[in-house]
Design a protein around this nucleic acid. Structure first.
Length: 852
RNA sequence: GCCCGCGUGGUGGAAUGGUAGACACAAGGGACUUAAAAUCCCUGGCCUUCGGGCGUGCCGGUUCAAGUCCGGCCGCGGGCACCA
């Protein structure tokens, strides 16, 4: 009998699938379609276990749908633009393009042995001119429809690398690469008008029934809708050109507690004042020096500057409030100006105490008399509280009622109006980088910003660039940069900014439906294949990527590139957990962690120690895999050692897909043992010469139960449960005394049920048992409902809710008869001790409860 | 600070309000073997006077029946955050 040899069978069946072309997506109007997509990878050069998990899950779905007769689209591509390629070029020399395409070839080579049911004929990389050229065409469409615009914005500028940094790249106020102190600079940049879609993107979340609640919530919070009052203060003495001062508040109910007004350092009023008062100029400059990074914001002291200006309270002309410039006010939220109510907002209170401003308690929060000290009283939104100063609502009202009443009252008095605001900002897409999609416009001294002519697309990235100097090589590339204006022909300059790589990943799913179309999409193909029926990826993309894609799908619809149904492009979303692995840690003399490789660890009775020194090692399970922690498991090694089926089987077992799964070598070995057992069992049964006796109802029942349960497991993303049911079925099969014919049928069913998860072994087993053709395309088995019902049922008997006994009865025995048998039961009789039961509850087919 | 999720054996985890711990890992015992590997079989929540008692983070409630529903605590994890 042959042993399981994964290397041999896996390449054999992969070749068979390729030759049969079973994974090529075919547009077949006669069939229902199914589009499965896993978030495409960045071509770093190595696949990791996270990829294996992601693509295995998608593959289970794709293969299952294929067997169910769907026309399946399961493509793969590469999110290939981005900084790492440029960093590699800077560090090691070479060209980002070479580095990227080499990595793609390497990674494809590493993915192939996994036996994924991918239609590789549709593969593309976002750095292919064919792809980014269409993206440029779409950018021009967006320009025509007013979906993209330019404005000046404050950015983190690294003066050494001469580039804009994302907030995450600013560490303690310094650039992450250069270590140079980051400056705040105003640059003119391109923006997508995503904020125009705030309400639509928010409302449509309600329709995303097959998205995780968690992701929907994160998106709702990110869009951040709030209702409030916007109104204007009039100045006691208005500065030139400033008539009134607009503010926005979500707590108009605290208006009677107002004691100051503050504006952002970027507010027009601040900008006006800094031109006239050197002290204000100095203060404003100070504010602007503070970075925009989280650290900078958290540690920065809240400071303000009294402008000397005064405004009048909207309810009382004699009530004057000072106007401050403060460093903690954001220009791009609300109006860039606020009123401060120290008694009922902690930050306002801190500010008021610091600058000795009034604190007006509109509540006397604790009616007992404690006035507001250093802790503000924030009126609760849903709880009824006693208001001392209320201008439009009951003395006892909730904060929400008060807010609502305050807005209505202010509107009736002509003091402002209720408005809705969103936290969502427009999406800045300009990057001062080489390795990205060029923005296809030209800057002309006379014509301004001129779109590149369509016939000149794609605007290709030049190959002859160098990374020996900081900054964007496109800026220095005169023959690329200096062009004639597409409109007037005068000498002009190309836009040298490239697009954020999130743009590339915001529509790749649509491009897969027609990867070589001469337009961004092909309407016929998009109509057939869209939407993505099942999208699978990491939770880390819960907000940006998914929100941007939802926006892009809408914008593409407006430009005629996607049908209306694709405005929400992902019908179902699944977010999978990480693959973790234990780490081995010791501490150095300064108590910093030092990580060790597994092969350096010696296991002793007292625990883990370090081989050479004998130092005690702390073993921490479930750590995220990372190079620095020395706990990375390389999928290539695992496949070489055990085969792809084992890697797939293990990663699907045990842990629910949405949770983290810990990789353990014991688990991988166990998975391999089980698959070997299945292989051996199948071979035994295939070779068995035992007489083909009559059918075996027990085994048949187990088979139908397995079909039902595994199917349900796959349908509900309960892969761990599907795997458990397959273990159960193979255990039953192994112990079964059924005849050869019944066993063969059961093994064939098992091969089919296993095929989405361990496709190579399934093919092998299927072939051994004389299955027709490829199991991959064999129609998915159906459970016979009649076979799922047992003739007899075992009913547990509870006494006062505690299990005491059980009886086995025919499945449709009358309740009265069951009751009779229950009362005759020994344990029940003992508990009753002669007395009649208070109550007897029979749940047919399930349970009996005797209440005494 | 605001919002959300989760607490079940030594471990990963099962369980439409209906037998808690399926399935697997690790562990212990046994068979086969000169031996090992491989393989196969068995045991297992805790206590017990063998009747039973106690068990799903803690306290209480609803119910014939609660891991599951409700209220309150405790702990862990995640998201957002100078957002007015």
């Amino acid at each position: 009998m042959s042993r399981l040899d994964p290397a041999q069978i896996e390449s054999k069946w992969q070749t068979a699938w390729d030759e049969a072309g079973v994974f090529l997506a075919k547009h077949d109007p006669a069939k229902p379609k199914y589009y499965v997509l896993e978030m495409f990878p960045y071509p770093s050069g190595r696949i990791h276990m996270g990829h294996v998990r992601n693509y295995t899950m998608g593959d289970v779905i794709a293969r299952y749908k294929l067997a169910q007769g769907f026309s399946v689209l399961h493509p793969m591509g590469w999110d290939a633009f981005g900084m790492p390629a440029e960093n590699a070029a800077m560090e090691r020399g070479g060209h980002p393009k070479t580095w990227t395409y080499d990595n793609i070839a390497d990674m494809r080579g590493q993915m192939k042995p996994l036996g994924l049911s991918i239609d590789w004929s549709r593969q593309f990389a976002t750095c292919d001119p064919e792809y980014y050229g269409q993206q440029q065409a779409m950018f021009l469409d967006f320009m025509e429809k007013g979906l993209v615009y330019r404005k000046s914005a404050v950015v983190n500028w690294d003066p050494v690398d001469m580039t804009v940094l994302a907030n995450e790249q600013v560490i303690e106020g310094r650039g992450w690469r250069s270590g140079a102190e980051v400056e705040r600079r105003e640059l003119t940049q391109w923006f997508f008008r995503i904020s125009d879609f705030s309400e639509e993107l928010l409302e449509a979340i309600d329709g995303l029934d097959s998205w995780p609640e968690k992701v929907k919530l994160m998106q709702r919070n990110w869009i951040g809708k709030s209702r409030g009052l916007q109104f204007a203060f009039s100045f006691v003495e208005a500065p030139e050109g400033f008539d009134r001062l607009e503010v926005y508040t979500t707590r108009p109910d605290t208006l009677l507690g107002a004691s100051f007004v503050a504006v952002s350092a970027d507010h027009p009023l601040a900008k006006y004042l800094e031109r006239h008062d050197p002290k204000i100029a100095e203060f404003v400059a100070e504010c602007r020096r503070t970075g925009t990074s989280e650290e900078a914001l958290e540690t920065a002291e809240k400071i303000g500057f009294d402008t000397g200006l005064k405004v009048r309270h909207p309810f009382d002309n004699d009530w004057e409030l000072p106007v401050y410039i403060a460093n903690f006010i954001l220009m791009d939220y609300g109006t860039g100006a606020i009123f401060g109510c120290p008694a009922h907002d902690q930050r306002d209170l801190d500010f008021a105490r610091k600058y000795r401003l009034d604190v007006i308690d509109t509540f006397v929060a604790a009616e007992g008399g404690t006035p507001v000290g250093d802790v503000a009283f924030v009126p609760p939104k849903t709880e009824r509280v006693k208001w001392l100063k209320n201008f439009a609502w009951d003395e006892m009202a909730t904060g929400e009622e008060a807010i609502y009443a305050a807005i209505a009252d202010c509107e009736s008095k002509g003091v402002g109006h209720g408005v809705v605001k969103y936290r969502l900002r427009d999406w800045g897409l300009s990057r001062q980088r080489y390795w990205g999609c060029p923005i296809p416009v030209v800057h002309c001294a006379d014509c301004g910003v001129v779109p590149e002519k369509r016939e000149n697309l794609p605007v290709l990235l030049p190959d002859d660039v160098s990374f020996d100097k900081p900054g964007n090589p496109l800026d220095r590339h005169s023959t690329w940069r200096d062009v004639a204006c597409p409109k007037c022909g005068a000498p002009a300059k190309r836009e040298t900014d490239t697009m954020d790589t999130f743009v590339d990943s915001s529509w790749y799913f649509a491009r897969f439906t027609a990867p070589h179309a001469a337009a961004p999409t092909d309407p016929v193909e998009a109509e057939y294949w869209m939407n993505v029926d099942q999208y699978i990826g990491g939770i880390e993309h819960a907000i940006l990527h998914l929100l941007y894609s939802r926006f892009f799908a809408r914008a593409m619809h407006i430009c005629g590139h996607l049908p209306a149904k694709a405005k929400e492009p992902f019908d179902a979303l699944f977010t999978q957990g990480m693959v973790t692995h234990e780490i081995y840690v010791t501490r150095d003399e300064r108590d910093r962690p030092v990580y060790h490789l597994p092969e350096d660890i010696v296991w002793t009775e007292s625990g883990a120690t370090l081989g050479r020194t004998g130092a005690r090692v702390e073993v921490i399970p479930s750590a995220k895999m990372s190079k620095s922690k020395k706990n990375v498991i390389d999928p290539e090694n695992i496949i070489r050692q055990f085969g792809a089926d084992t890697a797939r089987w293990f990663i699907l077992s045990d842990s629910p897909p949405e949770r983290d799964v810990e990789w353990t070598s014991a688990g991988a070995e166990a998975a391999f043992r089980h698959l070997s057992r299945v292989h051996r069992l199948a071979a035994e049964i295939a070779e068995s010469t035992a007489p083909a006796s009559a059918e075996d109802p027990e085994l048949a029942r187990a088979m139908h139960k397995a079909i039902h349960e595994v199917t349900m497991g796959i349908e509900t993303f309960g892969f761990n449960k599907a795997v458990a049911k397959l273990y159960e079925f193979s255990n039953t099969l192994q112990r079964s005394g059924a005849g050869a014919q019944a066993k063969r049928e059961a093994v064939r069913a098992m091969a089919q049920l296993m095929s989405p998860m361990v496709p190579h072994l399934a093919e092998e087993v299927w072939a051994m048992l004389g299955g027709e053709g490829l199991v991959t395309v064999a129609p998915w088995p159906k459970a016979d409902p009649a076979m799922l019902v047992e003739d007899t049922v075992t009913l547990p008997i509870q006494v006062n809710g505690k299990r005491r006994s059980e009886i086995t009865v025919p499945k449709d025995m009358a309740t009265e008869e069951v009751e009779k048998l229950v009362l005759e039961d020994e344990a029940v009789a003992r508990a009753l001790a002669g007395a009649p039961p208070k109550k007897l509850i029979v749940v047919p087919g399930r349970i009996v409860n005797v209440v005494i």
